[in-house]
Design a binder for these strands. Sequence first.
DNA 1: TAGATTGTTAATCGATTAACAATC
DNA 2: TAGATTGTTAATCGATTAACAATC
Lengths: 228, 228
Amino acid sequence: MTNPAPLPSIRRLPLYLRFALQMYHENVESLSCTRIAEALGSDPTQVRKDLAITGVVGKPRVGYPTVEVIESIRRFLGWENTRDAFLVGAGRLGQALMGYRQFREQNGLNICMAFDQRSGEMGGEINGVKVLPLSDLPDMARRMHVLIGILAVPARAAKMCANVMVEGGIRAIWNFAPTILDVPEQVILENVHLSTSLAVLTNRLEAALKADFLAGEMKHANENTEKV
Amino acid sequence: MTNPAPLPSIRRLPLYLRFALQMYHENVESLSCTRIAEALGSDPTQVRKDLAITGVVGKPRVGYPTVEVIESIRRFLGWENTRDAFLVGAGRLGQALMGYRQFREQNGLNICMAFDQRSGEMGGEINGVKVLPLSDLPDMARRMHVLIGILAVPARAAKMCANVMVEGGIRAIWNFAPTILDVPEQVILENVHLSTSLAVLTNRLEAALKADFLAGEMKHANENTEKV
DNA sequence: TAGATTGTTAATCGATTAACAATC
DNA sequence: TAGATTGTTAATCGATTAACAATC
């Protein structure tokens, strides 16, 4: 049994995949770590380590075949075959997620059905995807062997919806609701907490503005000194 | 000058803030690290270290005053005063983001204006927020001193829109487009790459399914042994 | 007082980065 | 061949975790 792959590496792999796909469409047949690192603003050695965990092998002086980079990242992430997913919450965010063709085409994720408490108002269908009442989810999940649930409901509804997913045998929940969920340990929970990302943004912005301010102070101080 | 705070800590602070706000509304007056860690499934010592960087001080045996946890995290992240932000791309994702009252109420982010190439079709307003043509952005950003831009356009339009933001003096870009952007070094770029999060989810799911399968194999093997 | 919890220093762990031989 | 690049091992760095005195 090999060690589990480092989480930071797993998070970087989709970026390499995206770049490799882009290069593939531009008919670039092989990629060196140097090139990938340059495009992504990271480090060649890190790229090499990351690619190594997918099992892809390169040629010295040449790099890795673009096609094999794509295939091995996809294989490693389980994206080579599409997997069905249920969406819960067909509001604006849910509809935006349904509209990302990328999920199906690049990330092996097919949102095959949606569930919403207001499914009636929605006419039972959005963009060709059926929208059913939430109460239908458990039966449907078991019948269709769907293992992934995407949670795109307001925070106040998230807990209840997650419970329904668990009841239906959903094994992995991709949660977009800004709330802390508590799921049974056999269920995988991955949170997309936007505030986490925003915190990094604002923290950096504050630091930059402070630096600007201090630079301004210095300038003033220097000017004053020059006058004297 | 103090060291910059560790990035992992910064990412965890919004979760503590959310929990503290929740406790505040339930009239819980103080919080211990033990309690926070338990609620979030993390470690008390880690929580203590994280809170320490915000400057909040606690009382042995009691914990940290809930109000002060809230205030100091907000202060540290620059969330105590709201900051205006421009949204580019008023499609489904953009509209979902505009609808998050949470940004304004909890995260100090006020989406005060939106820009879209189809602003005309949108009647110049969505949910009370003005939607203007993208070409108006640079002037508006300078006049209103807006420093944060939110990018919620398709990947193919992202580069161009980012350039317009930079032209308008935007200092921080929160990018939701699934693409790698290249911005001048004085501009802060924070990416929300959903595929990164999905990779973690699918990687864990694959591992869990593989474990299930192996457990099944073992069971079969045992049953066969028993028969003999 | 007794004991839970803070604040802080030290030890451990894991990821990143550097170094370098192998290779095409 | 010469030299860029891979693959891998070693060194460094930083974050997490453990330990423990101080304190309310």
